[in-house]
Design a protein around this nucleic acid. Structure first.
Lengths: 237, 237
DNA sequence: GCGGTCGTGTGACAGTGTGTAACAGCCTTC
DNA sequence: GAAGGCTGTTACACACTGTCACACGACCGC
């Protein structure tokens, strides 16, 4: 359930935070762990459920994965999204959340046994994995901040800016992003309803902050203002 | 910033989750790490700030510590509380949050260097520390759930029941708890305002769910209903 | 005693976001 | 091309929580 990309979800405190320690990815490649089978998974398929014994570590190749929890009465919370390049399933032996695809997704599946062998052989490898978990924790803290103290406008801006920064980190343009998930997933991630998300998109369009030709493509028109919103500097105070 | 006790903040999903792996505490004792100096810290003192290099791992002996983040505009979010027996400061080398005391607190301070030596000597020790971080992540996920999907009533119930369970786990009565922190800390932890927290306490009293002679002592009168509330089973749906 | 601060509790009111609903656009299916 | 399902958008009344204001008690120094 550890999601390296989660670490990019830092707007309010982006400057202070350590860089995502991606060192583990090349280490995994060097160990031949990437030779594992590649799975092609349809949209809306469950990878694991909360409480499951962890069986594999997954590396997302294409598509997107959604990490969530569900309350007894059916209310769902999205804890994180995993995008291509992200590693999910690090951490404890018992899954702390559900994981399901939100698109047609290709994954590399690394059996936990193989992963643990690699850790046992090379302590540095285990150390890198721990750093990823610590980064995920820091990202979860940031998620708490976003949900508990930001307005709907600020939350959506924070979400969009995280994706923009992710694009930038991957050598793509930060001026536009592609939303692989549905409005409901965004709403459940930001602790809002689907209607509020929809309304906020509309407000951003009307205010000239963004432009949208399609439902899943966002072009940024005023990155500075969006970043200020995302950092919680706008509106109140 | 890792807080073992945080793990007890699981009401909605308590059954599914692994037991707090306290194995690391006796291991630390066995390694003589506990021989470190004990610090007596006044109320409202800062132990570290977000972004600081980690210098010590702390074991709380008495009192209570509050882990928080602050937004650029001054809005504060409490991420967790650490109580006697809890270990804080595990995880990454850069602190992901602030830490300050909310009471007169006695702490054992273990220098990071000594801790790292112990990890290098004994991989199992490092593994136990990683498990603590993973547990803290699971607790942070639960915090996201509480804040994003529960009502004010449910949030406060969730908080009170976590403390009740903690008492139970420590061999004390689950029927009453002591609140070491102020209303403002509780409010910032639950993503509410101090007024809402105050009103919710009053509502609980009037509904016969709790009794309070003093501001910081809560006696539970209807644990079953409170637990249902905490699990998000009450009210809506 | 007095006046000050701090923490807490309570009331009136406003505002944000929600719930419910209807509707539009796009896709698949027949 | 029509029917139906899914996703997204918009409108409006309502509820919950936040904001602002003030009262109360405990504690402290004068």
């Amino acid at each position: 359930m550890i999601n390296i990309a989660a670490h990019s979800f830092h707007d309010a405190t982006a400057i202070k935070l350590p860089q995502p320690a991606m060192a583990i990815a090349p280490m995994m490649a060097a160990k031949g762990l990437h030779s594992s089978a590649i799975r092609k998974v349809a949209c809306n398929e469950t990878l694991w459920c909360e409480g499951d014994e962890r069986s594999h570590i997954f590396v997302v190749r294409t598509g997107a994965v959604c990490l969530s929890r569900t309350l007894p009465n059916g209310r769902r919370i999205v804890l994180d999204f995993a995008y291509p390049g992200d590693i999910i399933g690090l951490g404890a032996d018992t899954q702390p959340c559900d994981a399901h695809t939100v698109q047609l997704t290709r994954l590399e599946a690394i059996p936990v046994a193989a992963f643990k062998r690699a850790v046992a052989e090379d302590p540095e490898f285990g150390r890198q994995a721990s750093i990823q978990v610590a980064n995920a924790l820091s990202a979860a803290y940031q998620h708490v901040v976003v949900i508990s103290k930001l307005s709907a406008n600020e939350r959506l801006a924070s979400f969009l800016m995280a994706l923009s920064r992710r694009n930038e980190a991957h050598g793509l343009s930060p001026m536009s992003i592609l939303l692989p998930m549905k409005r409901l997933d965004i709403a459940d991630f930001l602790g809002l309803t689907i209607e509020t998300v929809s309304r906020t998109f509309t407000r951003f369009r009307e205010a000239g902050l963004i432009a949208m030709d399609q439902h899943n493509v966002v072009v940024f028109r005023d990155l500075a203002k969006l970043r200020a919103l995302a950092a919680g500097e706008g509106e109140h105070d």
